[in-house]
Structure formats: C-alpha cells, structure tokens
Amino acid sequence: MRKQIGVTKYWLSQTIGLLALTLFVCCYLIVTPSFAQTKVPLLFGENRNEKGELNPIPERFTSIFAAIEKDHNIQFSLQIYPWNRAVKIASTEGGLIFGLSLTPERAEIFRFSEPVVYQYLWLVTRADQQFPFNTIEDLKGKTIGVVRGSKYGGEFDRLKNVLFKTDDDIDAYGPRLKKLQNRRIDAMIFASPLTNHKEVEALIKTIKIPQENETDLSAHQVTRFSVLPIPVLKDGIRFALLKGKNDKLISDIDRTLSKLSKLNAKQKGRKRDQ
C-alpha cells in the first residue's frame, strides 16, 4: 500500500512538473516576441479612381512584396504619396521607391533593381480621331495626356514639348479620358501589363468617366475609345534607391526576383507540357 502511495506521489509530482513547464513555455511564447523584422519604408505612388478614392495596390505587386519580406525577414512600411512627391522624397531623402522607370538621368543617382514586371505604355485616342503611330516622330504636333511627374523613356521625354505637347494630370484615368472625350488632347498614355491592344480597349470600356450633367452623360455614351496597335514603350517597373544608401537591400531584392522568375518559368513549362 505504501509502495502504491509512493508511486502515485511520484507520478503526481511528475505530472505537476510537466504542467508547470508547459505553462511556463506557453507564457514565454505569448510574452516573448518572435525575432523582430526590420521595417523598411517603401515609397509608392498613389492611384485614385474617378471619385478621388485610393485604389488598392494590385495583387501582382503585393505578392512580390510579401515574397521579398519573407526571404529577407523585413517588413515593408508603405508610404503612399502623389507620384511626383514620392520621386522627390526618394531623390532627396533616399527612401526605397517602387515603380520607378530606368532613365539615363535617374541611373546617375539611383541603383535600380532588375525589372519586377513590365508595363506597356499604350496610346489611347477617340475612335474617330485615330492616327498612324510607329515611332515618336508620328506624335508631331499632337497633345498627349500624361501623368504629372512620370517618365516615359528617353526619346519620349526628350521630345515632349518640342516635337509634341504634353498635358500633365493626376494619376487617374477617368479625368484624362474626359479630356480625350472633350477633344482637349489628341491621345493619352495608358500603362498596362496587357500585351494586346484590343484587351486594353476592353479594359478602358470599364473605366467610369466623371460626368457633371446629363449632357456629359449622353456624350460619354456615344464616345468610343481606341488603343493604337503599337505601344510607345515596354517599361520595366523596378525598385530603386539612391546609390550608396543600402546596396545590400537592392541585391537582396534582386535575389528574390531571380528566384521568382525561375519558379514562374518552371510553371509555364509545366503548363506547356500538359
């Protein structure tokens, strides 16, 4: 009997000890934070709809941000500004920026990542005011609607307001389509990852144009838009940081982009084999 009592006390003490240890570990996991991620401010240009509301960041970008964060134990802290202001902050204060096009002038001060995605810059016109476009020279005498502060390639930027005029506006398609509808501009630049101009036309049909009255509404109903078949530019969208600020960060980003590119190539290969 005493032996049984002793065994019972032994197992009871072991059980209590195990419960105490489990409770301690649970409390430790709750109270003690995991290894802290390094927070990295990331400048991003705002994009607003026709009501002036911020559009959500496209999933094709956020998924890449998440992959970089996971690979390098960092956490992006998004800082969303009008594009011109975001570029100015990156140029003067040295913050990491996403969405910057590589130009000769910018290459002198920024270190760029490899392209994250490619955007095609399409020319949108009224359907009844199309014109032939093969080279920048075909824009002679035209007025082209662009996003204020954006760059569209060395040749386009060099010849704007020389060979042709630009109309700078906010990064919202609705107001610029309205200018096109009212013949205040001859064409506007429309950035899209889509590679077929007819698919871009279909997308443009879904964009709401701000209307002030019934006359505006009826005008919109009869206005059709066309996308010219040849894009102005195939533009690589990249991360960028002032040279010498944090070269390792750009190298880390490039490693993740390379890995994602290889995974994407494998997936495409598997789909072709199926």
Rank of each mutant, 00 (worst) to 15 (best):
R85F: 11
R85S: 09
R85D: 12
R85Y: 11
A86L: 08
V87K: 09
K88R: 13
I89A: 05
A90Q: 10
A90W: 09
A90K: 05
T92G: 09
E93H: 11
G94A: 08
G95D: 15
G95T: 12
L96V: 06
G99T: 07
L100V: 08
L102S: 12
L102Y: 13
T103Q: 08
P104G: 04
E105P: 07
R106K: 09
A107M: 13
A107E: 15
I109W: 04
R111I: 12
F112A: 06
F112E: 06
S113K: 01
S113I: 03
P115M: 06
V116Q: 08
Y120R: 06
L121P: 03
T125G: 03
T125N: 02
A127H: 05
D128I: 02
Q130R: 14
F131T: 01
P132K: 05
F133Q: 04
N134G: 14
I136G: 03
E137A: 14
E137S: 13
K140D: 15
K140H: 11
K142D: 02
K142Y: 01
V146P: 00
V147L: 06
G149P: 03
S150R: 13
S150H: 14
K151N: 15
Y152W: 13
Y152K: 06
Y152V: 09
G154F: 14
E155A: 14
E155W: 08
F156S: 13
D157F: 06
D157E: 10
D157R: 04
D157C: 06
R158W: 13
L159W: 13
L159V: 10
N161A: 10
N161M: 10
L163A: 11
L163M: 12
F164S: 10
F164Q: 09
D167K: 09
D167N: 14
D168M: 12
I170S: 12
L177D: 02
L177E: 02
K178V: 03
K178Y: 02
K178M: 05
K179P: 01
L180E: 00
Q181F: 06
N182D: 14
R183M: 07
R183C: 03
R184G: 00
R184E: 03
R184D: 02
D186F: 00
D186N: 05
D186V: 00
A187E: 01
M188W: 00
M188K: 00
